[in-house]
Each structure stands twice: as C-alpha cells, then as structure tokens.
C-alpha cells in the first residue's frame, strides 16, 4: 500500500459517501444518473467475485463490502424508494448503457491476462468502469443546474482514478515485474474521460461560479 493508492481509495470512498449522503438526507437524486450507478454496481459485482475466497487483508475486504453495499443501495434508492425515485430524471438519463456492457464484455473476452472466468470478469469490470461515468457526464450536460453535491461526487470519482495512476507509476518503479498494461490503459482512458469535466469544474471553482457545462 502506498500513499497514492490509499488517497485514491479514500477519495473513492468519499465519492460514494457524498452520493449516499445526498440521497439519504435530502431524499433526492436530482442530477444523478441511475445508469451510471447500475454500471458501477455491475463493475463491483464483476470485480469482487472472489471477495470471500481470496482474502487479501481486512482493509481490502471491508472496502469491497462498502463499495458493493453502497453501489447496490444507491441503485435500490433510485429505483424503489418512493420519495427518492420521484426526483430521478428518467427522460433525461437516456444513455443506452447496455451498449456499453456488451462491447466491454467482448473486449474482455479478447484482451485479458488469462482466459479464465474470474480473470475475464475482472477485466470486464475494468473496461466497464472506464466508461461507466458516460451516462452521468451526458446527464450533467443536459441538466443545466448541477448541484454541488453531484459535482463533488463526479469530481471525486474522477480524482480517485487519477490517484490510482500515480499509484501504478509508483509501483512500477518500486516493484519488479509490476506491469499491468490492461489496468493502466483502461485507468488512463477512464481518467481522460473526466478531462473536460475537471476543466469546467476547476474554472467554476476558480471564478467561484456555479458549475455549468457547455451544451
């Protein structure tokens, strides 16, 4: 464990806590894409298949349980909670995320480190996570008013993967044969997808204005 990875995990944890806090306290999911949340639940389900068979550390297991629990409960809130679901903007959240799942699965079947079920599912979760934010970014472009909790959520979610890239660089230079191209490329693509969001987020922060993305 290095500082970049710990910071990345904490940033990721904060992003889901910010979102859960928003949904649980103000009982609203305005501006939040259910499709991105469903993709994330699928990412964690596919990535943490070995949560009970492959014990790494208490930290690792606890964090996996938190990410699984939070992503599925956010999906539950947005789908079934009688108050929260009313604030879900379903005719704006129209990104066909099923068109993301299949290509990621096919790509994972083609490009992976080992052709085993667990490894393919793990690789699938990497590719899917790289594009999971797209429905949310599209929704942000559409909904003019981005409340700052949703803005913070997206920012933290992008920042965590950027910190993970620093972690991979650190591990590459400190651990022999630590080479994982698939993880690195998909992590880089994921972070680049946030590039323009980061730009506008920083601009709004610098000019102390409300965050709004150009149409």
């Amino acid at each position: 464990m290095n500082i970049f990875r710990l910071a990345g995990d904490m940033t990721h944890l904060f992003s889901v806590l910010v979102l859960l806090l928003k949904i649980h306290t103000i009982k609203s999911c305005a501006g939040v894409s259910l499709k991105t949340q469903e993709l994330y639940a699928l990412v964690f389900a596919a990535r943490y298949l070995d949560i009970f068979t492959n014990y790494i550390s208490l930290y690792n297991t606890v964090m996996k349980l938190i990410f699984l629990g939070s992503s599925f409960s956010i999906v539950w809130y947005m789908r079934y909670h009688k108050i929260v679901r009313r604030s879900y903007d379903k005719d704006q959240d129209t990104f066909r995320h099923y068109f993301l799942i299949l290509p990621c699965l096919l790509l994972a079947l083609l490009i992976n480190e080992k052709f085993t079920f667990k490894e393919v599912m793990w690789t699938f979760s990497l590719y899917l996570e790289a594009v999971a934010i797209l429905p949310q970014l599209v929704l942000l472009q559409r909904t003019r008013n981005i409340d700052n909790l949703t803005g913070q959520y997206v920012f933290l979610l992008g920042a965590y993967r950027a910190l993970y890239i620093l972690n991979w660089v650190y591990r590459y230079f400190t651990e022999p044969h630590f080479v994982h191209w698939i993880t690195w490329v998909s992590g880089l693509v994921q972070t680049l997808l946030y590039a323009d969001f980061f730009y506008y987020y920083f601009q709004s922060w610098k000019n102390n204005q409300k965050l709004h993305l150009p149409a």
Partner: peptide, 10 residues
C-alpha cells in the same frame, strides 16, 4: 511467481 498482485487493489 505469476504476479497477480494487482488483485490486491480495489
């Protein structure tokens, strides 16, 4: 040994 250390990441 085969390095599947990256699996220790979340």
């Amino acid at each position: 040994e085969v390095n599947d250390d990256v699996k220790d990441e979340l």
